[in-house]
């Protein structure tokens, strides 16, 4: 096996181990609850018999490690148990909402990622010019704004004052793609604004870091034009950090939807999670949390592997 394959395999393995660690952590967390789940749900007034019956029903009479394995094997087969609040299958609750959340995140990503990378490149290329400075101030301000501020501001301007877009993103009531894009434009725009700011700054920093390398000076002293210095000499070496920036922000998009979904009453996973936390519906919290953590870990592992693949020292190592 080559060094490259070993590195990639070890990254993958690390991702899987981390996911297990996170799932175990969540399980142990709930295990540490004062009283147990049955008590939590039925309240202090429940009789000993009903409690015992309910425990048996939930499988709480089993030892913890067996319950963990039981839960885990269910998860692997797509069975996340039942919601305590609605008594419905968690998997069923998740499925439509998962699609909605992914739709919103993808909508924002497709627009935000290319714009952010290009803006970051330009800011690095025209460092310390008026463009760079204003982009920096703009980005700093955008980063500093809570998502709900941006969201309400957009609602106030684009739906209340101008009436161009709906205040609530009711994706369930439209059936064309165009309709869906229109209905979810404001939440997508909120995410885009926040993500572009982060990504632009990080891309700029990554490129500027590479531009300080001696081989860049060497390229300039060979008479290489500036655009070619950035595209051919700096960019291939800045790929790894830029890939990381993109992955980090995609992960952020998927997580950042929580607040945005609440503002726009968008029927996605984020809103489900917030409701489940408020009503302490643990099976749902566990499933949604695991999903978010899994996506996050997956994106980070993918970024790691892509950066390894973009590094010539590793790609051409022997």
């Amino acid at each position: 096996m080559t060094r490259l394959q070993k590195l990639i395999l070890s990254r993958l393995a690390l991702g899987v181990v981390t996911l297990f660690a996170v799932s175990a952590l969540m399980f142990v967390g709930i295990e540490l609850l004062p009283g147990d789940l049955a008590q939590q749900i039925l309240g202090q007034s429940a009789t000993a018999e009903t409690l015992a019956a309910f425990r048996a029903e939930l499988g709480l009479d089993q030892p913890p490690h067996l319950r963990y394995l039981d839960w885990l094997s269910g998860v692997v087969q797509g069975d996340f148990g039942q919601s305590l609040a609605s008594r419905r299958d968690v998997a069923e609750l998740l499925s439509t909402r998962l699609a909605n959340t992914m739709f919103l995140a993808a909508y924002a990503a497709v627009i935000a990622v290319p714009i952010a990378v290009v803006l970051g490149l330009l800011a690095a290329l025209w460092r310390n010019t008026l463009f760079d400075r204003s982009a920096n101030i703009g980005a700093l301000s955008a980063i500093s704004m809570p998502e709900f501020f941006v969201a309400y501001l957009l609602i106030l301007v684009f739906s209340i004052k101008l009436g161009w877009f709906p205040t609530l993103a009711r994706i369930d009531s439209v059936d064309t793609l165009g309709g869906a894009l229109h209905a979810t434009f404001l939440p997508a725009l909120t995410l885009i604004l926040v993500v572009i700011a982060h990504m632009m700054r990080m891309t700029r920093a990554a490129i500027i870091n590479v531009l300080a390398a001696p081989y860049i000076e060497m390229a300039r002293l060979k008479g290489v034009p500036r655009w070619r210095v950035v595209l051919r000499h700096a960019l291939p070496n800045a790929l790894a950090p830029i890939i990381n920036v993109i992955a980090l922000n995609l992960a952020y998009l998927i997580v950042g939807v929580v607040v945005v979904e609440v503002v726009f009453s968008y029927p996605g996973l984020g809103q489900l999670l917030v409701d489940a936390v408020a009503s302490r519906d643990f099976p749902v919290v566990q499933a949604v949390g695991l999903f978010f953590a899994g996506t996050y870990i997956l994106l980070n592992v993918a970024a790691d592997i892509l950066s390894i693949l973009s590094n010539p020292r590793l790609r051409h190592g022997r």
């Binding site: 967390g29 929580v258 489940a276 949390g289 870990i297």
Partner: peptide, 16 residues
């Protein structure tokens, strides 16, 4: 490895 907001929501769900 867990997104901060998600981790916070899960932990607060557990401990209240």
């Amino acid at each position: 490895a867990v997104p901060p907001l998600i981790l916070a929501l899960m932990l607060l769900a557990i401990i209240g």
